[in-house]
Design a protein around this nucleic acid. Sequence first.
DNA 1: CATGAATGAGCCTTCATTCAT
DNA 2: TATGAATGAAGGCTCATTCAT
Lengths: 236, 236, 236, 236
Amino acid sequence: MDLLSPKQIEIREREEKILLAARPMIVREGYHGFSMDRIAEAVKYSKGTIYNHFSCKEEIILALAAQTSAKRVELFQRAADYRAIARYRMVAIGQAAQIFASEYTDHFLFEEIIMLPSVREKTSEKRHAVIQSCEIQCMSIVAGIVRDAVASSDLVLPDNMSPEEIVFGLWALTSGGYSIILKSESLSLLGINKPVQTVRDHTAALMDGYDWRPLSKDFDMDQVVQQVNQKVFLNG
Amino acid sequence: MDLLSPKQIEIREREEKILLAARPMIVREGYHGFSMDRIAEAVKYSKGTIYNHFSCKEEIILALAAQTSAKRVELFQRAADYRAIARYRMVAIGQAAQIFASEYTDHFLFEEIIMLPSVREKTSEKRHAVIQSCEIQCMSIVAGIVRDAVASSDLVLPDNMSPEEIVFGLWALTSGGYSIILKSESLSLLGINKPVQTVRDHTAALMDGYDWRPLSKDFDMDQVVQQVNQKVFLNG
Amino acid sequence: MDLLSPKQIEIREREEKILLAARPMIVREGYHGFSMDRIAEAVKYSKGTIYNHFSCKEEIILALAAQTSAKRVELFQRAADYRAIARYRMVAIGQAAQIFASEYTDHFLFEEIIMLPSVREKTSEKRHAVIQSCEIQCMSIVAGIVRDAVASSDLVLPDNMSPEEIVFGLWALTSGGYSIILKSESLSLLGINKPVQTVRDHTAALMDGYDWRPLSKDFDMDQVVQQVNQKVFLNG
Amino acid sequence: MDLLSPKQIEIREREEKILLAARPMIVREGYHGFSMDRIAEAVKYSKGTIYNHFSCKEEIILALAAQTSAKRVELFQRAADYRAIARYRMVAIGQAAQIFASEYTDHFLFEEIIMLPSVREKTSEKRHAVIQSCEIQCMSIVAGIVRDAVASSDLVLPDNMSPEEIVFGLWALTSGGYSIILKSESLSLLGINKPVQTVRDHTAALMDGYDWRPLSKDFDMDQVVQQVNQKVFLNG
DNA sequence: CATGAATGAGCCTTCATTCAT
DNA sequence: TATGAATGAAGGCTCATTCAT
């Protein structure tokens, strides 16, 4: 078993402190409004020390993206572990996505930034692979539930559609929805006042569109959501 | 009647030239990696001249966002004007969204950037309002088709759901889908090889989920798409 | 007699409008915070037009300095023309200096600026000579009063002291006094609450120091000041 | 005991080098014609280094003004410490003022500049307070001599006149005089060939005007000046 | 290892002046 | 003669990164 030496613990802690300080800077001002100077100022370490932890500022951004990606996997895994029929576990996944979106509103931003060529050039491919692997894990977790649904005959996949493609639709709908919620100022002008609820309704409708049983009209969504919150996410 | 003097035309043209040069820079390098110096270098005008057109670099970003927003309205309007039943016109809207996403892959990026506080501080509220109004127009165009469907009994809205809320779901699914297509590198690893087709399938499934007639199994989607491309978008 | 053509009148008026707009800019921000751009913006003429009137921006500053210099000569001349004994006319000169200092608080600033080598290099020697001549005129006017005092035996000059040297002392005291009043923030902290009055007291004391009759204790200063204000400066 | 590390000493020295290079630039060209670029060029450090010492160019100006202000306090204090009757110590103060004016001819200029709104906005109020406090110190030093003169019955203050107000008059006369000497080109044209001597004569006359004993005709001014120069300022 | 001063390229912006219309 | 767009040098300032202590 790997015990961390006090030294290593200190290093780990310092790293987290740096990331903790960096996140709000980037959220507020973007890639542009974040500098090693200001990080050093904020955490009260010297710039040299920061560089001992992160070889360039892009690595910090990557580390932040990795942090949130890991957090998402964790949330999804917890949702998938919920002991219930596949359809209810999908509700849990939906809750996981919502919690993730509200706690890490900035993740979309980081995803944009780390794709920029100028950033890729300066960062290790390995860190990128870690993030990509998290994405694949999330996808696989949900695809697993789809497979369970198929196995238990709750769902019949359309011809030429793989479980992953089903997940892609739900993923698009959910991430697109939360992205609009964060970016658009006109939603309330348009009479969309409970957008989070609306996203949930649409994911349900989409699954209904694939005739995934039980259909949303055949169970009490509110009750399931409440159960999920209590049993899966309350102690998080 | 000619309302623009030759001088004014020249100015207009130069403005477009500047924007044309700026767009790929921002796409490649983001807000951060785009500078007035390099724009001036690229278009071979002096920096002063650039500043005569745009009072600061953020205004260029805003102008680019406005350009694409207007383009989207135009595409959507053209789709909505297609003379066919509501469901088919929705197919046309879907094509419009796809064309938009493929021609202006960077629009998502601009939407992120213009929301940054540092950008908002330096730009006029008026320009932002123009962009927001384009968004509302698009929404209204599609909501109009939803209303037509309801009027002709092709669609019955669920309780407590407005046409705008229906549109929000389709918008989320579509924009989320194209956003993932652009950003994610793992799609093909996951066996999703025709993501654009998959987005179309999902929007169809979502409408099916609301029992919007005709259901996708009851018409030949490929043929409608082909018709739309020919009749609506070919001469664009 | 020289009549100005309508054209010339227009030119003259435009020039004054430009100077009127330039003065507060320089007062507020100094040489630094004043630009042809902003002048043009303020007077709503084109930059080309401004350049037709003033060949460079330093010429504007020089013109402003000349304007105030001329104004001072006028005030001093009016004071010197007061029909009274020399000592009372000196009171009138003191009032003229005070009016000048309060109406053209910025004159000291202009005097600094026009002496800068970088400004001199760009401006015509002739304009400078005009300003210098105003200074000499003021000096001569006051020296004339000193001579009158000597002629009428109110004052006996010390050995080796010319009338001009007497004037230099009063000039130094007065201009130094008003300069301190404008620049220093600590006067009230030091218990000097009526500095203008104090300047007047000191000039009186200085003249008393030269035994200029009548001594200040031998006439009612307040009454003379009041008379001067009424008879000399009221209609100005 | 050495409280400054070698590093700190080096920093201090560099700071002085920067100020030393900046002063003549500002004197020659004013606020306007002085730039961080040129400072860096002159001292052969990088611009970044200059900014490590002074957070903006206005801070350099303020530091220069503070430097001279402190120097004046020192000169005045030395004069005030001269062991002699009050009237003679005033002669010493006069010499201090003259030395200051000749060594720091530019101080008037800095006083103008630091009052500009554009400068005040960018600099800390604290630095300004330091400068103001120097002014108050000088004033207090001289006011102390006036009080000594009153205490020893050499001087009877006029009604309603405080020691500070007496000092204000001498201050105005002296600073006004040296300011004119520096700025005016017409003095020699007017027959004022020894203006420094004339300033001294006028301050003497002003004190005589207040009947401050001994009167200037009752002691040998030249001899006192000579004594002061030898005993007070020679080793400076 | 930690520190933080030094570097200097690069950024945004301003402005005096010119000149074609 | 008036205009105002174009110019491009210059200025203030920031920041990632290095390296001597």
